[in-house]
């Protein structure tokens, strides 16, 4: 921006910093779940680089958004909000876009989103077969877009997923899935012995990514092997 604005801004900052913070601490919270409209199950997510919830606090003119992350199991929680009216908007998700909601948050407020995941992984099995971990599953997609890729991910942490993995076995599909086809992916444990140490348990999770903008992967629950 123009320098004069910078100057004014610096000035304002200086002023603010002189004031004592005598406001109350955040005392409200928001929590909730992403529930599959059809199955009633929680919609599995990624803990990092996953679905985000944009929250916009009314009454402040800065336009600055806050973001909540969603936990792997499809729940979310933020207990450090000020009581106020907010617009809550899940974005960059792995489900058909839902509308923002205005909600008055007082104390502990809950807000569930009923959503339709882009893809459901069906008939999932993840098993150890010799020195390999093999995942097989069917895909049920709820939109007409291509499926970009499918993947099997391994990590020592139960929050395993595409962004959080030690090893990944991925396959590019770039096509609409065949609902009758059984997709198979495998991770060779020996070939990854430096990261998947023999004798240690790891979490494995299968997922599929729809080809819609910056949508996120859909998953089946992680399995410990």
């Amino acid at each position: 921006m123009n320098k004069i604005i910078s100057i004014l801004f610096i000035g304002l900052l200086a002023f603010t910093s002189c004031k004592k913070d005598n406001y109350d601490a955040p005392n409200a919270g928001l929590s909730g779940r992403f529930v599959d409209a059809e199955t009633g199950e929680l919609v599995q997510q990624d803990i990092i680089r996953g679905t985000q919830i944009e929250i916009f606090e009314h009454g402040y003119g800065t336009g600055q958004l806050q973001y909540l992350i969603v936990k792997n199991d499809g729940t979310y929680e933020n207990s450090l909000l000020f009581a106020n009216t907010y617009t809550i908007k899940p974005v960059r998700g792995n489900f058909i876009a839902v509308e923002p909601q205005d909600i008055n948050i007082q104390g502990k407020t809950t807000l569930d989103f009923t959503v339709t995941p882009y893809i459901r992984l069906k008939d999932v099995s993840i098993n150890k077969n010799g020195n390999k971990v093999v995942a097989s599953f069917k895909l049920e997609q709820k939109v007409i877009n291509n499926i970009k890729k499918i993947g099997l991910y391994a990590h020592s942490d139960s929050r395993v997923g595409e962004p959080m993995r030690l090893v990944a076995a991925e396959q590019e599909l770039n096509a609409v899935s065949d609902p009758n086809h059984t997709y198979t992916l495998e991770i060779d444990l020996d070939a990854n012995s430096s990261v998947l140490k023999a004798g240690t348990s790891y979490y494995f999770r299968a997922g599929a990514l729809i080809d819609i903008g910056d949508a996120k992967l859909n998953y089946a629950p992680a399995v410990k092997l």
Binding site: S6, F9, L12, T62, G63
Partner: peptide, 8 residues
């Protein structure tokens, strides 16, 4: 500085 410059 979007708080003061008002940019998107």
């Amino acid at each position: 500085g979007i708080g003061s410059n008002g940019l998107v």
